[in-house]
Amino acid sequence: MLRLIPILFCFVIAIGAASPAKAAEGEHPPHLHWSFQGMFGSYDKAALQRGYKVYSQVCAACHSMDRVYYRNLTALGYSEAEVKAIAAGFTVTDGPNDEGDMFERPARPSDHMVNPFPNKEAAVYANNGAFPPDMSLLAKARHGGANYIFGVMTGYEEPPVDAELLPGQYWNRYMPGHVIAMAPPLSDGMVSYEDGSPETVAQYASDVAHFLSWASEPTLESRKRTGFKALLFLLVFAGVMYATKKKIWANAH
């Protein structure tokens, strides 16, 4: 057993090293079960499509997502033709053309998702001085990830009596510091679902959190598949090496 001490050492350091970073103020959001968790986890395509619908009809009014391209939407289960149609619904500025003029054209799958504002200043000006963050990496850029996004979407409350909020500020249970400049974005029935899923704030919140998790980590599924193969190989290899080592050392003791 004593021989295993160095290996245990690795474990201890690795666990100690994974410092659970603390969220400044704000409550811990509820822990939901997500289909992409675990060793064989994968995204739920139906949830992704619903989440994209919520994003494009609600969030996209203020939040950009410019590291995600329309072509990436095939990962949600859309066909190439469908993606082309989705992209064509947006207009982008391109150019200059042969005459040196900029021109507008329908977006193509190779374009990134169109920004709601021409620049950051316009976004800040239109949003009461607060910048709506780009959503491409939001699920990774916040403690708690998908749970946090779900929490903020469902965590709007009446402020405590002693809290002083400025106009355009809202109270949110799970927001660090509790004060948020975004008005409650979701309400029951505001986005219509075709697959019969409940049209509630909780369902919208969980779908959009699912979608944003995909947006921040689109390679998750192939990562888990590759990891499984690599580990399987290494386990067999380690077993073979253990037997080899035993055999070689048999006459040395």
Binding site: A14, K140, G227, F228, L231, L234, A238, M241, W249
Partner: peptide, 29 residues
């Protein structure tokens, strides 16, 4: 032989983190 065996155990731990908790050491910022 002994180093290769030890190395493969170490690599298992390393790949476990790299493939299943790759942002374990990374802060949201």
């Amino acid at each position: 032989a002994k180093d290769t065996f030890g190395l493969s155990i170490f690599l298992i731990l390393y790949l476990l983190v790299s493939f299943y908790a790759p942002n374990m050491f990374a802060h949201p910022d």
